[in-house]
Design a protein around this nucleic acid. Structure first.
Lengths: 199, 199
DNA sequence: AATAAAACGGAGGGTGTCTCCGAATCACTA
DNA sequence: TAGTGATTCGGAGACACCCTCCGTTTTATT
């Protein structure tokens, strides 16, 4: 009987089914890392995380070559929720309200998982390629929100969406007082108000 | 012959003149640290700094028990310049203009000595006592500026000065793109504009 | 069951932090 | 100017973390 063959690109020879233990370890590491980061901040020892996950250091580093890669993986789902929220707000709310709501949500997310904040800014020194994926999602979200608000005429034409984003990420980094979320939310309104067109 | 004695507080017994080598070493360390931080960022090896200063690690740690203490000491003079600028601006410019000018200057200072930025926010986890002195100076400066602007009626009554400060420090941390100073300056105007009273 | 690709794991080398304490240095006194 | 005790120096060393390397083990596949 003639059988079907999946078409293979010649450049990509037969792909093997990924090993189940690899997948399992990857998830275990992510699980442990999430707890560890939330508990003890973003510079927990990676060797410790590996041990708690019942895995050798080598395994951890093979899956996540850098600390940043691990952090990004841990928070990828949160970032996707933010991106989803953008779409929903854009459909159901007037432009400026949507922008404001999203910014507040952003603050909330960072307040909950405070570790994501230092991870969001690239390190001093140079624009690295880290967090490429997550950053693109976030940037896409605020870009869409601001563009819509500009089009509606409720926001200055010359507003750079990333300016807002930078401010948001920034305040989230400064955790000098326990009430910083309130401060951040007040700031959202200042930013919105300061972004309206000059009359 | 009867001699004079300096009156001594009993609680504070005779103070000895500080040793000259201690003073000299302290200054040498500061000098080297300043260069090292500016050149290679804020996580240069402290042992390296000690060696470059021709000093043992113990000496460095005795003078500056933590890395943060050293950083603060290095940038204390810059902070004092900022505080001085506040006084000058307050005397020579109208309230809002003074506030704006100072904020822009703040951005410039951080742009020049980028290391001060990560040093300005307390670490995640809790409000530590680090940078107590410097932070007080900066906070005092913006507090004065905002209070004056509020009194003149050009700024909302309910504006918290520290909200602005947080935003400033924050954006300075996010160095994702090489043009962040421009972004920061645009943001200053957004913040000012958003801080005006609602009509 | 045999085979080879893929993943594992942990020992180990490199680097950074910070302490500890005998040795060296200095301010003060007579 | 020499003596002396307080103060500071210095660097070896204990510890922690990062990350790699490679012999061993597991797995998908034939």
């Amino acid at each position: 009987m003639q059988r079907f063959f999946m078409p293979k690109k010649p450049s990509e020879p037969t792909r093997r089914k990924p090993r189940t233990d690899a997948q399992r370890n990857r998830e275990r590491i992510l699980e442990v890392a999430k707890q560890a980061f939330t508990r003890s901040g973003a510079n927990t020892s990676l060797d410790d995380i590996a041990r708690d996950a019942g895995v050798g250091a080598g395994t951890l580093y093979r899956h996540f070559p850098t600390r940043d890669a691990l952090i990004e993986a841990v928070y990828r789902s949160e970032v996707e929720k933010l991106a989803a929220a953008e779409r929903k707000f854009s459909e159901t709310m007037p432009p400026v309200a949507a922008l404001r709501a999203w910014m507040l949500l952003f603050v909330d997310y960072i307040a909950a998982k405070h570790i994501i904040a230092p991870a969001l800014n690239t390190f001093v020194g140079g624009p690295s390629k880290l967090y490429e994926g997550s950053r693109a999602q976030i940037q896409g979200a605020i870009d869409a929100l601001v563009k819509r608000a500009i089009k509606s005429g409720d926001i200055r034409k010359d507003l750079d969406p990333f300016d807002l984003l930078r401010a948001l990420i920034g305040v989230s980094n400064v955790a000098s007082t326990p009430d910083w979320p309130q401060s951040a939310k007040r700031l959202v309104d200042i930013l919105i108000s300061g972004s309206r067109p000059v009359k």
